[in-house]
Simulated scan of single mutants.
Amino acid sequence: MIKKRPETVAASALGREDEATGALIPPLYPSTTYIRDPDNLYRRGRVYSRAQNATFDTAAETLTALEGGAETALFGSGMAAANAVFLALAPGDHVVAPRVMYWALRAWLEGFASRWGLLVDFADAGDIDALKAAIVPGRTKLVWLETPANPLWTVYDIAATAEIAHAAGARLAVDSTVATPVLTRPLSLGADIVMHSATKYLNGHSDAVIGTVTTARQDDFWATIKTVQSQNGGVPGTLEAWLLQRGMRTLFPRVRWQSASAQTLAERFSAHPGVAEVLYPGLPGFKGHELAQRQMQGGFGGMLSIRVHGGERAAIATAAHVSIWKRATSLGGVESLIEHRASIEGPRSPVPADLLRLSVGLEAVDDLYDDLSEALAQAREI
């Protein structure tokens, strides 16, 4: 049998067909419960749909194959997926996370997780020595990375962090939402867990809120994550799971197109008079560029940020004058989005006030450049 390449696995949804009808596209199973056998057993393996809905299978098993993992669990959102990893720990366990990371998860770690009893420290994960100093052997149970990290697109060294974490007896979990398995496979670099806000690139069409966690091995920690999934009830709906498997069929061409367009825009805006700085791992002058070259294969992602000359006022005015770019929160969809991140994150945000976060979609790259360039010019005239 031919060993399928990742592009084929994604596009064909593992090559499955519906046995009952011959349908090429997997069906939805809206049933919430399943028939028990006459002798009181469940030989077909399903009892209740909270975590055992058959619609989950294709998406979960496709992602497991793409990540090179042992199993994948689906959750009702990226936050639910991330929370499940931390809730699989015990009160009193020590966690190390990066200073630059998704702001909502950082707020959850500072708030609920700390009140629940986790001991959380934030470190400069881009400095391996600083990261190593933050990890306490025997006490630290989990190191969390997000790479590239939203919204400065900092690139963290997965392999080096995995080595340090494992030497201290800790696990490494990686939020790979922006990289996707198209560009980076954290488990192959030593991570134990990879998490996605699958609402973003994996679904790719801005029509399903869903999250995923994939494990490198089926161990006790994974069993606890699965228990959290089921007992907390943070699972997706049937339609969302179906939309995820639908979206992953086009994952590779979407991410590659978006990465190529983002690279072009990053290079062109680096020379734009209205832009003070472009943050993008694909630029040679970007601090994490050499690491990104080693860790990301085939592109540097569809996300970049620009810092606008004229500060916060000019940045907000720029976003107000776009027409093709859409002013909306989220990322990874087929449409291009622009957002003034500091306004979303609030006064405690580490994000510069002059920064605009850009999620590059599938539109013509010249149209995207012209639209934003014109908006920058209009903002300068105000």
Rank of each mutant, 00 (worst) to 15 (best):
G247W: 05
W325I: 10
G302E: 13
N150R: 11
L109T: 05
L283M: 08
E67L: 09
A60I: 10
Q378S: 09
A13E: 09
L187I: 08
A149D: 12
Y48F: 12
T32C: 05
I344A: 09
G332C: 08
T64V: 08
L283S: 03
A13H: 10
H196E: 02
L368R: 01
G346N: 06
A364M: 02
A170T: 07
Q52K: 05
L145T: 05
T161M: 03
G288H: 01
A241L: 12
Y42T: 05
N203T: 05
P253Y: 09
R46P: 05
Q231L: 15
S176Q: 02
P91L: 07
G333T: 14
A276Q: 15
A317E: 14
G111W: 03
E67K: 01
R46E: 14
G274Y: 00
G285C: 12
R106E: 13
S373W: 01
G204N: 09
V136A: 07
V155P: 02
K287R: 14
F300W: 01
E163D: 02
Q263E: 15
V360K: 10
T55Q: 08
A353V: 02
S114N: 05
A65V: 06
V334C: 12
A292T: 02
P347S: 03
A149M: 08
L172S: 04
T215W: 11
D127E: 11
Y34I: 06
D57M: 09
E146I: 04
L291F: 06
K141P: 05
S349E: 04
F286G: 09
G69E: 12
R46C: 01
D175C: 08
E374S: 13
K3Y: 01
A125Y: 04
P98N: 03
K326C: 04
V255E: 06
A328I: 11
T215V: 14
Q229S: 15
V235C: 09
V322A: 01
T147C: 01
A342R: 15
G234N: 10
R115C: 03
R341D: 11
P137V: 11
Y201S: 10
L244Q: 07
G247L: 02
V9M: 06
P151T: 14
G169N: 09
I210Q: 05
Y156S: 00
A11S: 13
Q293G: 13
S12F: 00
A81S: 10
Q293S: 14
R327Q: 04
L187A: 04
D219A: 00
R171G: 09
M1D: 10
A216R: 15
V143E: 00
V9P: 00
T177H: 00
T33L: 02
L331I: 02
A88F: 02
Q295R: 03
G285D: 15
D57V: 13
M101R: 06
Q293L: 13
T161P: 09
P6W: 06
G301E: 10
Y34E: 11
L265Y: 08
